[in-house]
């Protein structure tokens, strides 16, 4: 695995989020709005299995790209992603690193970011969606689908990241 593996994985995930939403833009059953947050899941896993610095750097850079390229609300996701990477790195100081804790934190992170984004939209007047509608039509379905996806890929993703991390350390002993 080359050194560029991780950056390209994150980049592809970043690009796919927008493309997936474009290709499947119709709300599920005309009600449920699914928001892809796989980039965030990836950032959480990087923070846990590779390191705090990497997690925060990827979080900040791709959060900023997300802001500039997609939402045009500068700083919102850059701040959220790097803060989440920081907090998770601190929490991992006392917890075991395994696929279960990583999955748990990824789901918690998605929940936090969803509420955070909703709060910002409410403050700037970007939406008039009621809390109840948000909870039922956006929050729960998004969380549900991501829980399934995370449980499927968690182990594989963990192994991939650890393997890449080892390889990188071998090639450049510091």
């Amino acid at each position: 695995m080359s050194r560029l593996f991780l950056p390209s994985l994150v980049t592809v995930m970043f690009l796919l989020e927008s493309i997936i939403v474009q290709l499947f833009s119709q709300p599920l059953f005309d009600v449920y709005l699914l928001v892809p947050r796989m980039l965030l899941v990836l950032i959480v896993f990087i923070t846990i299995f590779i390191g705090q610095t990497e997690g925060m750097t990827y979080g900040f850079i791709f959060g900023l790209l997300y802001d500039v390229a997609y939402t045009e609300l500068l700083g919102a996701y850059a701040f959220a992603f790097s803060l989440i990477a920081y907090l998770i790195a601190k929490a991992m100081n006392v917890l075991h690193k395994n696929a279960w804790t990583a999955s748990f934190f990824a789901i918690v992170a998605i929940a936090c970011v969803e509420w955070y984004a909703y709060a910002i939209q409410l403050v700037i007047g970007g939406t008039t969606m009621s809390v109840q509608t948000f909870f039922q039509a956006r929050f729960l379905p998004t969380l549900f689908i991501h829980t399934i996806v995370i449980l499927i890929i968690a182990y594989l993703l963990k192994q991939t990241l650890l393997k890449w991390h080892e390889k990188r350390d071998e090639s450049s002993p510091v």
Binding site: S18, I19, V21, Q22, S25, T71, E72, Y118, T127
Partner: peptide
């Protein structure tokens, strides 16, 4: 070729 993935503002 893309849509705002955060789906608050439809762009």
């Amino acid at each position: 070729i893309g849509r705002n993935p955060d789906r608050w503002e439809e762009t």
